[in-house]
Simulated scan of single mutants.
Amino acid sequence: MMEFVLVGFSDSPHLQWILFGIFLLMYLTILLCNSLIIVITRTDATLQTPMYFFLSHFSFLEICYVNVTVPRMLTDLCSQKGNISFFACATQMCFVLMLGGTECLLLTVMAYDRYVAICNPLNYALVMSHKVCVQLVAASWGSVIPVVIGQTCQIFSLPFCGSHRINHFLCDLPPVLKLACGDTFVNEIAVYLVAMVFVTIPFLLIIVSYGKIISNILRLSSAKGRTKAFSTCSSHLIVVVLFYGTASITYLQPKPNQSEAIGKLLSLFYTILTPTVNPIIYTLRNKDIMVALRKILTKLLP
Rank of each mutant, 00 (worst) to 15 (best):
A117N: 03
T69R: 12
Y112M: 03
N123L: 07
E62W: 14
C89E: 01
F86D: 03
V66N: 03
I63S: 07
D113M: 08
T91R: 12
M98L: 13
N123Y: 06
L74A: 03
I118E: 01
P71I: 03
P121R: 15
E103K: 15
E62N: 14
P121T: 09
C89G: 08
V109G: 09
L105V: 10
T69C: 13
C89P: 12
M110K: 02
F95N: 11
S79P: 01
L105E: 06
M128V: 05
S79M: 09
P121Q: 15
V96C: 09
M110Q: 01
G82S: 07
M110D: 00
N67S: 08
G100F: 10
D76M: 11
N123A: 06
R72M: 10
N67Q: 07
G101D: 05
S129N: 07
V109Q: 09
Y124N: 05
E62L: 14
V66P: 15
R114D: 01
L105M: 09
N123E: 06
V109C: 07
R72W: 04
F87A: 14
G101H: 13
T69A: 12
P71S: 01
D113S: 09
F86A: 08
L77E: 04
C94H: 14
L122V: 15
V96E: 02
A88W: 04
Y65P: 13
Y124S: 05
F86N: 04
C119S: 12
V116Y: 01
G100D: 01
D113W: 01
Y65F: 11
C94I: 14
A117Q: 05
F87V: 14
F95G: 14
I63E: 00
E103C: 06
G82K: 06
Y112V: 02
Y124V: 02
D76T: 15
C104T: 04
V68L: 10
M110G: 00
D113T: 08
M128H: 05
Q92V: 00
E62V: 08
S85L: 10
M98D: 10
T102P: 00
L77F: 00
A117W: 00
N123H: 11
P71Y: 02
R114Q: 04
Y115E: 09
E103D: 10
I63F: 00
L126D: 03
